[in-house]
Nucleic acid binder design. Sequence first.
DNA 1: TATGAATGAGGGTTCATTCAT
DNA 2: AATGAATGAACCCTCATTCAT
Lengths: 208, 208, 208, 208
Amino acid sequence: MVSQRETTRKVKEEAIFSAALKTIKEKGFHKTRMSDIAERAGISYGLVYHYFQSKEDLFDALLNRWWKGLFRLLSRIQKSPDPLRKKLAGIIHYFLDTYQREPELVNIFITEISRSTTNLTPERLESFKAFLSSTEQVIQEGQDQGVLRTDFKARYLTNIFLGALETFVSTMVLADQRIKGNTQKQRIAESILEVFLNGAKQQGVGGH
Amino acid sequence: MVSQRETTRKVKEEAIFSAALKTIKEKGFHKTRMSDIAERAGISYGLVYHYFQSKEDLFDALLNRWWKGLFRLLSRIQKSPDPLRKKLAGIIHYFLDTYQREPELVNIFITEISRSTTNLTPERLESFKAFLSSTEQVIQEGQDQGVLRTDFKARYLTNIFLGALETFVSTMVLADQRIKGNTQKQRIAESILEVFLNGAKQQGVGGH
Amino acid sequence: MVSQRETTRKVKEEAIFSAALKTIKEKGFHKTRMSDIAERAGISYGLVYHYFQSKEDLFDALLNRWWKGLFRLLSRIQKSPDPLRKKLAGIIHYFLDTYQREPELVNIFITEISRSTTNLTPERLESFKAFLSSTEQVIQEGQDQGVLRTDFKARYLTNIFLGALETFVSTMVLADQRIKGNTQKQRIAESILEVFLNGAKQQGVGGH
Amino acid sequence: MVSQRETTRKVKEEAIFSAALKTIKEKGFHKTRMSDIAERAGISYGLVYHYFQSKEDLFDALLNRWWKGLFRLLSRIQKSPDPLRKKLAGIIHYFLDTYQREPELVNIFITEISRSTTNLTPERLESFKAFLSSTEQVIQEGQDQGVLRTDFKARYLTNIFLGALETFVSTMVLADQRIKGNTQKQRIAESILEVFLNGAKQQGVGGH
DNA sequence: TATGAATGAGGGTTCATTCAT
DNA sequence: AATGAATGAACCCTCATTCAT
């Protein structure tokens, strides 16, 4: 059984989260005021400080949602015996699914972290590098298995793959486009996979 | 012959430009103070306002350097009869060359414009869209000529191409990596081109 | 019962009002700094912005005190069946009474609005014109009733009346004179009324 | 014979004067920048300092034009044996004539001096008081000669007279109205004189 | 828990004035 | 006489954060 106090806490935190997400997406982290968030959450701005230490703290809590899910997925992928295509598809779908469910979260990740040095504290950079590394390991594995060409560094291929994925999402983000149904999502995922895997596949002698 | 006045102006403007470039790259546009720029340029902050109307104005002047060169290149490419590979190589090399010469400029473009909604005034968005469109036309042309597969929208392929390019540059940017010589530059350009063109090429009739 | 919060707000607003009134009167609106007002009110300047949006906003709040009372009076006068002399006396006394109670308020009205184009936003001009019009209607009515001469436009007579009144007040304002008791106030009011009504009265048929 | 140097000086000073007059009238003294004046005069802002020590200095030079003419008139009036009506008419016409010729000058006098404490340096206040005194002497003389009622202080009657005059001019100033020909000017002058003299005349026992 | 009064560091911008050329 | 580069005091306003209630 959960105490009423705990319930209130959850509810309020969620309201703040949601308000922060929307507002930061609209105005950017820097231009978002704590009072904007509070107003949107329907509480006083003083109360935000009851739940979160500071603006930065709240921001990190937001980002952790993104990282937590992503790292859980990546660690599952790394252990799994699935073929490369399925693993990469998993990463793509994490982006697209999250974008469907919480577009603001993906927006913020792309906008404030993935391409911005401004908000990059050492801790955040660490998370980002870990993400790159994990993806690179998946790619490296593909090379080791002879599925991907080895004449380019794993890091290069990783850049190409993630770059394609990120740009897809960020152009949608910029244009405020929603993903219309699973068919479109499949289509997007396939185009990235097809082009990348085709382009990066081992050009085997008798390869096919 | 140029008057001394005019020379002074040019010299100072250049000093401000250079200082702004470095400082914005280091701290981001938002966290860069006009006084930071002035100090780095070795002048009083009042003088910055003598040459530029405002912080935004200075920022736009900076960006125009980037856009001007890029649009000149794109218009040349659009008119040229070169094969697709050479055209795309041209775009890639504009990024890489500029990154070699003025890494901060590319950094700022990637960081503050390409992936950030925060600083996106309508005018800047316009430039950005024009850039996307022009690239898309090149890709579209590749499809029309039967060089690129047509089962994906031109916009999709454009995203993949530019995404790969941008991510390459931005990971270098993030890691503060310099490009070591033309060999490395060639290698990077090739990896993008190879993977993209291979992955996006028209699948021959008997192809499998 | 009033909450303590509300009381604090009222008290502070009043303190700011009062400080603004005195400071603007002494230094003029332009030369008055928000920090001057805050200092005089015994609070930090940040708090002024907690209660008023901007310097202009605070200024308007100040003026509204003046206008509110004046327009309430004018609308009462317009509906009333009183003779002209009593109506004009009402207007005069509004100036003189307010001057006794809040000399700074009258000062600011005269100094910053009545004769200055500098601070004249369209909204403020509107208030001013409404004031002129209402007074003109009273004068016009006097003409229609045969009490005032009709060989001069109502607007001309209005100018003369208000001009006399304003100058009285503003010379006191300039000299920082207080009105000493009701006798003096009566005397001033009478002198304006006497001279104006005598000078502007209908020259009766047999009158001369 | 005048040296060419001296001629240039005169021409430039006049250009600066004229530009200052117009600009201060439009924007007010405080909001007028030295560079505005220079630009309007078609010279560099540095040059303004060659002719005038400071912004305040230029402003005083402007005002002196007004005061010089007014004091010359007042001293002539004080010595003259003309009847009161003619003397007051002289003062009125100085305002109206100057307003026809140099409306900005009258505007500035009314706006920045007559009703504003902001720009009131001790020297300027001195001029203003001298003007009031001189006019009061004329009025006093009228009382002594039995032309004006003596039951009101000379200062009161002076206020009424100048107030009526000033308000006339300042409403035209506010509305940016020009005086259309001498007929209108006569009409205005008459209305002020008529109302004032009628209202302030000695109420003879059997007087009429 | 909850409110909002209170603080003040911080930053963009303006503009009179000086002065080397 | 003439220019405009150069300076920096001044001032408005924002907003994260603290804290009494």
